[in-house]
Structure formats: structure tokens, C-alpha cells
Amino acid sequence: MNNSLLWRATKAVFVREVRSELRSRQALNAVALFAVCSIVAVSIGLGPLNRSAELPLIHAALVWIVLLFAAFTALARVFVVEEEQRTAAALRLAAPVHAVYLGKLLFNLVLLVALTLLVAVLAVVLLRMQVKAPTAFAVMLAAGSLGLVTGTTLIAAIIARASSRSTLFAVLSFPLLIPLLVTAVRGTALALAGAGWDRCLAPIQTLLAYAVAMFVTSLFLFATVWED
């Protein structure tokens, strides 16, 4: 497959997803609403939390739980909508297989990054989350987001052709995301607590390694899932 052809097709798929999303705003609304509701619920329910040694861990866990469940509501959309609207055949016939995967992966990544930003801001404002090492925090969230999308996009393609899709997406993805979740929560807690790069580097490396492994495996397996 010619690389520039692949890149051009990938870009076309990505742009089309963005355009469709901006016009319908389904995923954006769902995800933003979910994030706001969750953080507000926690904030109201818990009230102001005392600063303690464990607070960064609690904040980190909350942030990642909200991201995880928001991801469950929105990240399968890229493939499910194609099946529901019956546009998959047109795409299957016209687009190179890997361009489909890469374009939709990119879209999910952008969506998740936007969500992460929103959740971080909400957590700082409503939960009084203190970020003592902002760069490490940002890198940690970015690496974790990368892992989250690479781990779930293939699953989204799988469940798009099944029934009871929304629950199935969560059921299939969750066990695979556990290593990611554990590492991300701990790493984010370290960054929130202001740990130095020497301690933050290890979780970041693990997250990136996970993302790379999921990405490469997905590339190998996607054609099998996408074919009819």
C-alpha cells in the first residue's frame, strides 16, 4: 500500500468523522454531559475533602474512572454509527482497510483528549484537585489517553457487528484496560502529588508501551474484523 495514498485516505476518513460529528454533535454532547454530571455528583456527594496523603490518589482514581466510563459511552460510536446508518459497505468498498482504522483511531484520540481537558479542568475547579507537577500530569494523561484509544478502537469495530453493542463494548474492553487503569491512576497520583520525573517516567513508559502494543496488534487484526 502506497504510503502517501494511505495517509491521504486516513486524513479523509478523519476529516469526515470530524465534520459529521460537528454537524450532529452526538458524541460530544454525550461525553461532555457525562463528565460534568460525574464530577458534579462526586463534588456534591463528597463535599470538600481534607488534604491528606491519599488525596492525590483519590483524585487520580476519580479522574480516570470518569474518563473510562465516558470512553465507554462514546468511543464505539465511530464504528457503530457506520453499521446503524448502513454506510459501512460504501466505506468498505472505497477505502483502504488501514486508512479506516487509522482515521477513526485519530478521531477517537482527539475526542478523548478534548474530554480529558474538560475533566481535568472540572476536577481542578469542582474537586479542588491540586496539580503539583503540571507537565508530568499532562504527559501522563496524554499517554494514558493514547493507551485508552488504542486499546478500545479494535473492540469498537468488533462489537459494531454484534447486538447489545453498548454493554458489550464495556464488557469486552474493561478486562483489557485494567493494566492501563492501574498504571494511569498511580502515575497520575504521583504527578498530582508533585513527584519528580524520575518517578513519573516509569508509569509513562508503561503506558506508552501498552499503547504501542495495542496499536500494532490492532493493525494486524483489523483487516480480519473489517472484512465481511
Binding site: K11, R23, T87, A90, A94
Partner: peptide
């Protein structure tokens, strides 16, 4: 090298005719 059309071929309803064709042209290279 293959062109196919059928009653159950659905294109993207949220795009215009021109955008649909431009998308499929780009994606086919």
C-alpha cells in the same frame, strides 16, 4: 477498478452531495 451501486448502498446523510463524492474520491486516492 470496481464500481457498485445497490438500493441498500447508503452514503453519508450529514454531508452534501459534493462532500460525499469528494470524500470517496480522496479515500480511493
Amino acid at each position: 477498478d470496481i464500481g457498485w451501486m445497490a438500493p441498500d448502498l447508503m452514503l453519508y446523510r450529514e454531508l452534501t452531495g459534493r462532500e460525499n463524492l469528494r470524500f470517496f474520491a480522496d479515500v480511493r486516492g
